[in-house]
Design a protein around this nucleic acid. Structure first.
Lengths: 250, 250
DNA sequence: TGTATGCGTTATGTATACAATAGCGGGGAG
DNA sequence: CTCCCCGCTATTGTATACATAACGCATACA
């Protein structure tokens, strides 16, 4: 195999894992489809050992499912699986927010969150919001949630939230926001931003219960949003994870 | 390698994973200790490939930590990590209980749980409880919690709870209950049993909020129990996960 | 005597060869 | 014509060989 170009800067396992996850979330690999190791070796450029390690990681991550007779298939999710995952994440984030509030955080630790908040405010001020701004929002929002999670200072909770985020926050590289969905999405984003503000305030004032409650409400908003999107077939691009929902034909 | 005895009834990877997890939870491998693949190959009887797969799975499971320079070490947990894990699990079980209550369950589905409940009642009736009965309790309690989790009918939640259970429910093969700790443990078990009864009742009557609340209370009881056990240095054997707590000397 | 550098050993990351099994297709018999 | 059985092929599970990087020790120089 002299023709293989090996990139030594990052481990083959990680490279394969990223490539495969991208293929799954972008829909190149359809739900229920069996993953061929050989094919994965070709598309990722790594050899079978790292590919298998990546497959094991993705299975543990919940994106793949082991086939009893051997090998892995892309896991198929129902609409309720996705909505449950969102609520699950909200519940865990609620716990994280409560921990942060109860344990107390310094002004210094809250600073990056407030900056994030300000940056999002800036973006949402545009009416209607542009596609570029929306993309920035997606990144900023993810950052906000990650920072909030960290604020709990609880490694087990942080870890668990990371694992619960695969579905609700799936963001493959091919992510594009549909133009027509922007105004409706912006409305939702504005409400969500209000939640963000409340949780920060609650944490600052060490109101654990309030911090927890608002994150749960935040998740419920996301669930309602998901339902609406599916029913109206609008702004589906908002949630890349929808690619993983098993269709009626399957 | 003619001398190697291969057991074909179960995959080498699974065998290695079970063996290694047991070594970790039983304390054969100390927290912070680097795991030698070579040594693992010898103790598990599998070859390096399945051993590595098992190591990856255990890392994803949270019992191992990747070392930047390569390889894995046994993860060390603080007392708060354990208590957070317990609260985490309680929060997730609360969500599961709420889902079960909101979505409704048939009498048929509740039956095994009630049987479990009855069997535990039977055990707790002895005063003081015997060591054998206590061991049975550990199994029955785990079964009750697993059944309750399943009742949510939410694969993502069930999955997440399974992953969150490693620490709170760690039950290595060498598990033994200290005689002197029995009376105190029995008191705690009786209170816990009351929680079990309430959650069943709440689910039956479709009271989601109450079902969720009692599971959270259940977790808080376990946390208080943990604190007490650590402070008084009593019934430490109750929680095998304590073997993973990093000592001050580390 | 202490520190730095270089070499050797060892362990991990990767690749590939081998083995076993499951699925599929063809052929034969009823 | 259909159904069952046998064999083949393709793919996974396992083992091992090879390469590379890190750690430690020893030696030499400051």
């Amino acid at each position: 195999m002299a023709e293989r170009e090996v990139d030594r800067s990052v481990s083959q396992t990680v490279k394969a894992q990223l490539a495969l996850r991208d293929q799954i979330l972008s829909g190149s690999l359809r739900p229920g489809e069996r993953i061929s190791e050989l094919q994965a070796v070709e598309t990722t450029g790594a050899s079978r050992t790292p590919v298998r390690m990546a497959l094991v990681r993705l299975e543990e991550e919940g994106l793949l499912e082991a086939i009893p007779s051997g090998g892995f298939m892309v896991k198929a999710f129902s609409e309720r699986d996705i909505s449950d995952s969102i609520e699950l994440r909200g519940t865990l984030e609620g716990l994280a927010a409560r921990f942060a509030a109860e344990r107390g955080v310094s002004a210094r630790e809250l600073e990056p969150l407030k900056e994030c908040l300000g940056a999002i405010d800036e973006l949402l001020r545009q009416v209607p919001i542009s596609i570029e701004a929306f993309s920035s929002y997606v990144a900023l929002n993810a950052r906000f949630h990650a920072l909030l999670t960290e604020l709990s200072r609880s490694p087990p909770v942080i870890r668990q939230i990371d694992r619960a985020s695969a579905l609700p926050f799936a963001s493959p590289s091919g992510f594009v926001m549909a133009q027509s969905a922007l105004p409706e999405a912006q409305q939702i984003l504005i409400i969500g931003q209000e939640h963000h503000r409340v949780v920060i305030d609650a944490i600052e004032n060490r109101e654990g219960a309030r911090a927890e409650a608002v994150m749960r409400e935040h998740a419920r908003l996301a669930v309602r949003n998901l339902r609406l999107a599916l029913r109206n077939r609008t702004h589906l691009d908002l949630l890349p994870a929808l690619a993983l929902i098993k269709t009626a034909t399957d």
